[in-house]
Design a binder for these strands. Structure first.
Lengths: 207, 207
DNA sequence: ATAATAATTAAACAAACGTTTAATTTAAAC
DNA sequence: GTTTAAATTAAACGTTTGTTTAATTATTAT
């Protein structure tokens, strides 16, 4: 599945539009116009609008899997690993926010049945990685035993997603007028907050 | 803005469909058929499909505001209040998951411009309530000082939303085959997990 | 240079869309 | 019982939708 320049242009434009206006809210003519190709090219290259979406999802997830987290093999403490992992998650989700937005919608859409095996595998890999780090911390006695590992990623990614969904609200509430200041906030203050949250949950004394 | 039975039937059907298939993925004929009314009735009662959405949002948010949290005025400790608040949040979002799903999408949709003032006000009220509880806990010395209150609701609601978005994934991962078992998990294990998370963040020792 | 394949186009297609019309039925008021 | 207003209907409206067609241009291979 190799794509040429024009196909990638179509995919890129489609990703932006699908994220901004939804799959059903975007017309193939809109995509074609922005990508500066004829409408027929979308059927010609991808078969249909729906198959374009499938191609886009595979295209993006495949590139996400390349960003492998071998950064974690280092000789750092479990706490440091958790900090790094949280920062990595947030950065990844934020920089891939368009496809995440699309997936978000498609996951709960009962109209189309996308094959999301690849996405499930990514989630399983992440869960396994998280399990290993926490097990290590528990063996060292720095993490407490009763923690629901399966729900941790929901807190990390869910917090970011919810924050980003309410972007206009938080931009005003937190005085972040520009795009740059908003992005900076996500990658610093927000990230620190989630790191603190996860660390607190993992290390806090049982009552 | 009082609605008769038939109007409420249309609103109810529209809510389900908009949540399941998206606003643009739902046709007015689909709504009319399921609500067992003529297509023209939607324009007749609400003016247009878009105004039906606006009416639905107002209708639901108004009913949500009625569920006022005077439950918190009791003589309980800040920690107990936090526990109660988290459980209340989760229950409310879960039982209103359809309209939340719709709002979620509309908040990040650049096509339509819904007037979401009412929703902003709900968020501000919740934030103020949370601020008061935490301030009380800080004065009593049970909560630590450096906590980003504005981001707490993102963690609570975001976690649930992300969990629910990936419902099929978690139903398999956590062995929750039936709807009842899934709902039970949300209202017990999941809620406890979020309560623990928030409490840990608020009470943990600074490093 | 020629043949063959790929890329690109404008136009047409039928189907589905949201909305409106005009006629008819039902309900309420007097 | 008659009048008036509200509710309901089937049909038609003009657009827009995703996709296909058939013709043309560009590229590649021989």
């Amino acid at each position: 599945m190799e794509f040429n320049e024009k196909q990638i242009e179509i995919l890129t434009v489609a990703e932006k539009l699908f994220a901004d206006e939804g799959f059903d809210g975007t017309s193939v003519r809109e995509i074609a116009q922005l990508a500066q190709v004829n409408v027929a090219m979308i059927s010609y290259y991808f078969g249909s609008k729906e198959k374009l979406l499938e191609a886009l999802v595979l295209f993006r997830i495949k590139s996400m899997k390349l960003q492998l987290e071998n950064l974690l093999q280092e000789n750092s403490s479990p706490i440091e690993k958790i900090e790094k992992l949280v920062a990595l998650y947030i950065k990844r989700v934020y920089s891939n926010r368009c496809i995440y937005q699309i997936l978000h919608f498609e996951l709960s859409n009962k109209k189309r049945e996308l094959n999301l095996e690849v996405f499930t595998q990514v989630k399983n890999d992440n869960l396994e990685l998280l399990r290993n780090i926490i097990r290590e911390g528990q063996l060292q006695g720095v993490f407490q035993q009763e923690v629901n590992i399966e729900l941790l990623s929901s807190t990390i990614i869910g917090s970011l997603t919810h924050f980003h969904m309410n972007k206009p609200y938080f931009k005003e509430l937190l005085h972040l007028p520009t795009e740059a200041s908003y992005e900076h906030y996500v990658l610093t203050t927000f990230t620190t907050h989630i790191q603190k949250t996860i660390k607190a949950l993992l290390t806090h004394e049982d009552n």
